[in-house]
Write a protein that binds this DNA or RNA. Sequence first.
DNA 1: GTAGGTCACATTGACCGAG
DNA 2: CTCGGTCAATGTGACCTAC
Lengths: 103, 103
Amino acid sequence: MENQEPQIAHMSAAQPKMPASSSRILYDIPCKVCRDHSSGKHYGIFACDGCAGFFKRSIRRNRQYVCKAKSKGGCMVDKTHRNQCRACRLAKCIQAGMNKDGN
Amino acid sequence: MENQEPQIAHMSAAQPKMPASSSRILYDIPCKVCRDHSSGKHYGIFACDGCAGFFKRSIRRNRQYVCKAKSKGGCMVDKTHRNQCRACRLAKCIQAGMNKDGN
DNA sequence: GTAGGTCACATTGACCGAG
DNA sequence: CTCGGTCAATGTGACCTAC
């Protein structure tokens, strides 16, 4: 896959630009995996709820994803494409430093 | 996105190679959109249940998808990648000849 | 302040009855 | 036969609570 749009369920809309303190979301610290706004550290790194949840599910269920792109393992992983390739998303989570014991 | 795997819900497993007549599935006629096994004509062309359902929903809800790949509109659309890019899947459905009034 | 759990929501595709 | 409708399965990500 390569694109899409509503692919995700609750694709968060543009943030109201809050006081950056009254919310759970850290508007200035990007998710180390997809660059979306993070919501604190998760499994060792600053990550958004999406990537944290994805990593959580992948680990818990022992998921083995396979990148089906021509350029194996080269899928872009940002807020827009993160749901296009689970294999590359998980790989980037790990590469970014995520680990089960969060440290 | 570029790959994946369980992306789809009920990814049909390898077919038991039925008598090719006792089932709804036409094992010898591929879906003109994704090459998966078709299940007869849908909206004008031989298509699988997946592409037929996708086209049905897209039309009914007047979906406007946007291809987010670098190579705009160049996403592969086969059984494996069909859920990677809705924009390209719909484009290919139309290009393959699908139309609301099936003819 | 993060792990873990929960859950509303959305999509997919197999199947069914109607015509 | 195809169409439209239905629905079980599944994933996503926003939240909440406990620690």
